[in-house]
């Protein structure tokens, strides 16, 4: 393997991702675990940039770090008794170890071996012509010949969901 700037950056982000993941499962404090999770997700965002997918990287930061991880922290903080919880509640860690190892092997096999069709077919796959850059993606959202209809409907859906959330959550009628 050639040793260049790419592989160094890849190494750094991989260490961040794996280290964050390890920290998430080993830390006994839930808040610390959530912070480690953010670190790990940040590493994944870096890997996306390396794969020349800047849009996916931005989404990774916005959705996973900005929304999901923060939501976890909120949930932990709002249930006060969980903030200072330090015992391990999962007594079946050996079972989960087996499951995780199996999943790991499965993914490894799926990526390396040509289980799903011969490898040559995959090599011949071209990047989608529809969306090549983030600019194309933005255009696709507002082009009548592409995805403007689902995009607009999704905004209507979010409006209705927000109104619904207020209806369900508000104190008095």
């Amino acid at each position: 393997m050639e040793f260049n700037i790419h592989s160094i950056v890849f190494l750094i982000f991989s260490v961040i991702t794996l280290g964050g993941g390890l920290g998430t499962v080993t830390s006994r404090n839930l808040i610390h675990g959530a912070v480690y999770l953010i670190v790990s997700l940040f590493g994944v965002a870096g890997l996306f940039i390396l794969l020349s997918a800047p849009f996916l990287a931005a989404i990774q930061v916005l959705v996973y770090i900005g929304a999901i991880a923060i939501l976890i922290i909120f949930a932990v903080m709002l249930t006060r008794s969980m903030t200072r919880m330090t015992e391990i509640y999962n007594r079946q860690w050996s079972l989960s170890l087996v499951v995780s190892a199996l999943l790991f092997v499965l993914l490894l096999v799926g990526i390396i071996l040509p289980v799903w069709g011969p490898g040559t077919a995959n090599a011949a796959l071209q990047p989608s012509e529809l969306v090549a850059t983030t600019v194309d993606l933005g255009v696709a959202f507002v082009d009548g010949n592409q995805f403007v209809l689902p995009f607009e409907v999704a905004s209507l859906l979010l409006t209705a969901a927000m109104i619904g959330a207020i209806v369900i959550a508000r104190d008095r009628d």
């Binding site: 409907v153 999704a154 859906l157």
Partner: peptide
Amino acid sequence: VALETTTIPLYI
């Protein structure tokens, strides 16, 4: 998108 636009309001 259409499926979710139908079901999410129905949950509410």
